[in-house]
């Protein structure tokens, strides 16, 4: 057993997987997650109802404000993830098509350094160099999740048994057909795992976007802290965590549905 193999597997496999895949579709975790989220939000709501709300808290702890921030948060997350999917997957395919080892090595190295870059540092640097606001946060999110998805696309395509592609070619498929009908479907699980990680990640980084005035639920956390109103802080933190869990849950379902049947 080589260490490299262990590392590769560890990084490329989605966090939730452990050995057993593809058993039943509605596993315990599948069912429990949304129930837990609903219960947690309900408890939060009831808890806030019992508190005496002063005028400062009332400004943030109302449905309009929370829905507005949630919408900002979701828009940021989904627009960034959609852009990443559209940009990074084709780039990954092109990158894996090149014969040049140098190019591939360079991309993987940059991807590794990108992973070592703290999101908060990157987003703040971008704000200082360029401007604060929503657009900056969006670009930071895209740039930040671009590399993992690109890398997973490359890894997904590279891990395909060469015998399989060779037999496809032997059956008379053109390179394009091999890519579309053999390689991409086989790489789908790894590519989707990358997208799922990047989605969850975007929810987290979108929270930090509050520091550069890009809105989102991070606002509630920061305001709660600044104004010494802990219920506001807790509400923001709990809601954003529930969103992250919900998106991860939806992505795990998408992963199972989109995976090719034979794999």
């Amino acid at each position: 057993m080589t260490f490299e193999a262990v590392i590769e597997r560890d990084v490329s496999v989605a966090p939730a997987e452990l050995g057993v895949r593809r058993t039943r579709f509605w596993t315990l975790r599948r069912v429990v997650t949304p129930i837990v989220i609903v219960v947690v939000l309900l408890v939060l709501y009831l808890w806030i109802q019992t508190l005496t709300i002063d005028s400062i808290m009332a400004r943030t702890l109302n449905a309009d404000y929370i829905l507005l921030r949630t919408r900002e948060h979701l828009v940021l997350t989904f627009v960034a993830s959609a852009l990443v999917a559209v940009l990074a997957i084709p780039s990954g395919i092109i990158a894996s098509r090149t014969r040049s080892r140098l190019l591939r090595g360079t991309i993987l190295t940059i991807a590794n350094i990108g992973q070592a870059t703290p999101a908060i540092g990157f987003i703040i640097l971008l704000a200082i160099i360029w401007q604060i606001g929503f657009q900056t946060a969006l670009i930071a999110l895209v740039a930040y999740s671009f590399l993992p998805v690109l890398r997973n696309t490359m890894v997904g395509l590279a891990q395909i048994d060469p015998n399989v592609t060779e037999s496809a070619r032997g059956m008379g498929m053109t390179p394009g057909q091999v890519l579309m009908r053999i390689e991409l479907p086989l790489a789908v699980p790894v590519i989707l795992a990358g997208l799922r990680t990047s989605l969850v990640f975007c929810v987290g980084v979108a929270t930090v976007a509050t520091f550069i005035d890009a809105g989102g639920l991070g606002d509630m956390i920061v305001n709660g802290l600044k104004l010494q109103r802990f219920p506001v802080l807790i509400a923001g933190a709990v809601i954003v965590s529930c969103i992250a869990l919900l998106i991860d849950w939806l992505a795990s379902i998408a992963e199972d549905l989109l995976r090719p049947k034979g794999v």
């Binding site: 929810v203 929270t207 956390i221 802080l233 933190a237």
Partner: peptide, 25 residues
């Protein structure tokens, strides 16, 4: 096993600013 790994995975899903801030109180 699945309980331990799942709960640890849930923690990792929570945005870091949220988890860190929630511990301040």
């Amino acid at each position: 096993r699945s309980l331990a790994v799942t709960s640890a995975a849930v923690i990792l899903t929570i945005p870091s600013l949220a988890l860190l801030a929630a511990m301040i109180p």
